[in-house]
Design a protein around this nucleic acid. Structure first.
Lengths: 186, 186
DNA sequence: TAGCAGAAAGACCGATCGTTCTCCCTAGTG
DNA sequence: CACTAGGGAGAACGATCGGTCTTTCTGCTA
């Protein structure tokens, strides 16, 4: 039976995958769990995705899309300095959300060691995009070495996204906020 | 038959576990694979470890011990500033090593979502230790806010250890080096 | 020399892995 | 009305998962 909110089985699969993969890890969630919680049959699963790995790729692509949308939104209409701070604040705020469990992409990378795997391609693509965003912002800000600044911000991002899970999220957010202010010229 | 280099089956298991868990992920390596590559039988495995999780804990504890030994060594006899730089250089250098595949502890955390799991306890312990080391070093250095400085260094550490796997290790090392110099007073 | 602990070898357990299959039902379209 | 595509239900595939078992052999020590 199709509900009004999630009419298509494919959408239900993607939403369920996003929730379970993030909360419990990718290898830890089997196809059985997936189809049961999505209220979809195995046949339907394999009608929409050639295999589990393709669902993983779709999951990460959707996550990347969602983040790009959020980052694009918080930057809109802001001056360079505020835009950069807002962009990095998205990271800090994320660590403080309920059910935060680190970065989807870093977590996935830990489970897919092969650099040539399609999953890694999605991860690389996302990271390249984010580095580019930060570099552009730093350049707009007139930073003397925008490339270096962007790379430091990426270090802080990656660190915060893991520290936020393992350490105190509020402290991590504040640490990140201050660190970002130290990186950009004032 | 016992070889001269690794006489004890338990040692062989631990070394093999360290290699395989790090290179391919923990859940991805089964007990079959483990005992085959360690040239040990299943019975021997379960004679030394109650279960696979106990081997994982032993693996991470050994890794933590090794890192504490290295960090202790590079600090020895150095002035505070050089000691801190040397300590953080260990991270940057690690990213450039062959077969580097990120932080053993962050990778393990990604595979063990339950914060109450014994594996997570080892991870938390290691992180607490390292944060303490950096805080002491920053305090010795006379940093006005050694706690904050240490937390920023941890962010950079975590970020570098993941960026080193996903991005260009040499660039990450240089980015980390410059970032560390910006954190400590000069 | 006798005894025993530890390791080798491998069969075996139920459960789960990702994947494929058949059969039936229903909604939408010609 | 007939046709068809897509989803529901569930059995089944071989492989592997973590874990237990029995049996045999070896090397050390009392």
């Amino acid at each position: 039976m199709r509900t009004a909110r999630e009419p298509h089985p494919k959408d239900r699969l993607l939403r369920t995958a996003s929730r379970l993969f993030y909360a419990e890890g990718i290898h830890a969630v089997g196809v059985d769990r997936l189809v049961t919680e999505a209220a979809v049959t195995r046949a339907t699963f394999y009608r929409h995705f050639p295999g589990k790995d393709d669902l993983v790729v779709a999951y990460l692509k959707a996550a990347s899309e969602a983040i790009r949308e959020v980052v694009g939104r918080v930057r809109k209409g802001k001056a360079p300095r505020e835009a950069l701070i807002a962009t990095m604040s998205v990271i800090g705020d994320a660590t403080c959300e309920d059910d935060f469990r680190g970065c989807r992409f870093l977590n996935a990378a830990a489970e897919y060691p092969d650099p040539g795997h399609p999953v890694r391609a999605v991860i690389d693509d996302h990271r390249t995009w984010f580095l580019g965003v930060l570099r552009d912002l730093a350049a707009d800000l007139g930073h003397p070495d925008s490339d270096h600044a962007a790379r430091v911000l990426v270090l802080l991002r990656d660190g915060a996204l893991h520290g936020g899970e393992l350490d105190d999220p509020a402290v991590v957010r504040e640490t990140l906020r201050r660190a970002v202010e130290d990186v950009i010229p004032h």
